[in-house]
Nucleic acid binder design. Structure first.
Length: 278
DNA sequence: AATCCCCCCTGGTTGC
DNA sequence: TGCAACCAGGGGGGAT
């Protein structure tokens, strides 16, 4: 479900709703997500104050004060959602379908729901977060200052993989999932199947700009809601209204009216305009 | 080192 | 209507 804009939207929602609250209780209903939830360490959050939420790639880093400071590393996988609700201590809060853990903070509760259980939860010392095995090998943030055409050009030399596959590999650049890879390649007029190493400098400039503008527009729109993504406040994203090619096989290209095509790359559906994208 | 393929899991949609 | 096949926004891990 979530790519970078959706995770960023969730991050902002969590900060807005929860900064300054204190952890009152933790409940883990089932531990078998992508990796086993370390229940003991999660319980170490009790009593700490929620200091803020950061994001690295599609990982949320929920920061809790204390000595040492702890961070909860949360990944939503394909179908994970986080909700914030008010917690009335006088009433039991029934477990939602597929609700796997919850953290009670002040008068609120943060609930994690994930039908497919591809998500993850870990708790680590905040000072060690960057060296976490899931974070240490990640490429640059696409909205950060180091990601530009020069970087993309350098990183793609001698790479034969399709440019879309390259963009979606988090070791190269993080946060670009299936929707936004398709949309950015359309904006840059680059065909998804092009071998990455065959992109010239001008194409790399256009693509880096397109990745940044696509993700930036999507963040501004609160993400993309196609099936079931919604924010912590249960509001939908709006970027789906701006999708040019994703999910539109057989429909006319908004630029040239040629019919959008679908093919499979690396096992993932890929949408592009055969006339605009070369 | 880079690439390819499989897999984890549940549920909604599609097509016969 | 019923049922099976297919598809889904991620990404680690092992084989090649």
């Amino acid at each position: 479900m979530p790519e970078l804009p959706e995770v960023e939207t969730v991050r902002r929602g969590l900060e807005h709703a929860l900064v300054g609250t204190r952890v009152r209780a933790v409940e883990v209903f089932r531990t078998d997500l992508r990796w086993p939830i370390p229940t003991e360490r999660v319980h170490a959050l009790v009593g700490r104050r929620f200091a803020g939420a950061a994001r690295r790639s599609k990982y949320l880093l929920l920061e809790f004060s204390g000595t040492p400071a702890l961070s909860a590393l949360v990944h939503l996988g394909m179908s994970g959602r986080l909700f914030v609700a008010t917690w009335d201590v006088r009433r039991p809060l029934p477990r939602l379908p597929h609700e796997h853990w919850r953290i009670r903070l002040g008068s609120r509760v943060l609930r994690y729901v994930d039908p497919r259980r591809f998500g993850a939860l870990d708790v680590v010392d905040t000072g060690d977060v960057a060296q976490h095995r899931l974070l240490r090998d990640l490429g640059p943030e696409p909205l950060g200052s180091s990601f530009d055409g020069a970087f993309l050009h350098g990183a793609t030399r001698k790479r034969s993989a399709p440019i879309k596959t390259f963009l979606m590999d988090a070791r190269n650049v993080v946060g670009v999932g299936n929707i936004y890879a398709a949309e950015a390649l359309f904006r840059a007029r680059v065909r998804p199947t092009r071998p990455a190493g065959r992109l010239g400098r001008a194409a790399c400039d256009a693509l880096a700009t397109a990745v940044r503008s696509t993700l930036g527009d999507a963040v501004a729109a609160g993400g993309t809601t196609i099936r079931d993504y919604i924010g912590v406040d249960r509001r939908s994203g709006r970027f789906q209204q701006q999708l040019a090619v994703y999910g539109r096989a057989g429909e006319p290209c908004p630029e040239c009216q040629a019919l959008i095509r679908r093919l499979v790359l690396g096992g993932r559906s890929t949408f592009f305009c055969p006339r605009c994208q070369r």
